[in-house]
Nucleic acid binder design. Structure first.
Lengths: 173, 173
DNA sequence: GTAAACATGTAACAGGTTACATGATTGT
DNA sequence: ACAATCATGTAACCTGTTACATGTTTAC
């Protein structure tokens, strides 16, 4: 049910159309949650049906501008404070590590080296994003910086792990 | 499609029934991939239909013992070496961090403190698991240790981040 | 005898992806 | 005029969860 709450959360400090929200998912939220166009439009209709959001303006090309209702704000607060966050217990990357015994040591090493490269790219992209954001003193900046710090530490950790892991694979001979 | 490959991977070094595989998901793979009973049984039937695995023995209570076929082994190798690992771009925990501005600073601090507690528990549980596993020199041990090291570093990083994050939330007054 | 563990299967539903489909408006 | 962008919607399909349903074997 997180998509629904992600939409409510984005509508807290602005009203927006489905199209606007899609862009927010691809920018602000891209490192945190993803959603497809079709998913967003159908979820917005459901949220409007249940009264958590409402169409408060219409624009050209059938554009519908949505705003959060009081019920929506209440629901978002309830979700934030009274429900447990769900952990991710699925990592395809680690699943593959588990099965590296089925490929040759050369292939296993290659895999870990490729991972190191991916993680290095991610780390650099996030550092670049961090540089371009103009952080202020508002809530969004405070919590945005906390989320950013997680990303930076996570990428750093993954990169060091992958570099270490490559060294652990003994080549035959 | 990772569930299918997780099943193939588990069948590489042993033949097993759906029931056995369910237990493996809840033990060896519990930190890497999860699957429900209903998912496992139906996926096994699909895999048998397409010839990637085969029933090689039957036991009491309708037990069906599955083994990997040559086609299955080939498919597993193809997946390991010729397909890109998919990254997780969804973290409910971070999504909530993004929206902490909608709750009070007290509630935000509580949330981050609760996270720190969860991460500390996870870290301790994983260290305990690491202690109880008897690592050898075989492939499964080598790659199992690499996966374990990821988990240990990950939990350590998350815990330190959460502790740091609590300190970042300024209480009013 | 009976409880726990073994063992499999199916149905309903929720969440997510890809592809198709359509059209209006803006900028050059 | 034409391309890019804005803007929404739907259908088919896949993956995953929860719940229901059934029956056997083993250990005490």
């Amino acid at each position: 049910m997180s998509l629904r709450h992600a939409l409510l959360g984005l509508l807290v400090d602005r009203s927006a159309s489905g199209y606007d929200l899609l862009k927010l998912f691809n920018t602000s939220l891209s490192n945190v949650w993803s959603a497809t166009q079709s998913q967003i439009y159908s979820e917005l209709n459901k949220l409007a049906d249940t009264g958590l959001i409402a169409v408060t303006a219409e624009g050209p090309r059938g554009r519908k501008q949505y705003s959060l209702t009081d019920e929506g704000r209440t629901e978002l607060h309830r979700w934030m404070t009274q429900t447990k966050p769900q952990r991710n217990w699925r990592s395809e990357i680690l699943l593959r590590v588990f099965f590296l015994g089925v490929v040759t040591p050369e292939e296993a090493r290659d895999y870990l080296a490729v991972l190191a490269g991916l993680f290095a790219d991610d780390a650099e992209a996030l550092r670049e994003l961090d540089r371009t954001i103009e952080w202020g003193d508002d809530d969004l900046s405070v919590y945005g910086k906390i989320a950013m710090e997680y990303g930076l530490r996570f990428n750093e950790m993954r990169l060091r792990w992958a570099e270490w892991a490559v060294e652990q694979v003994k080549m035959p001979g």
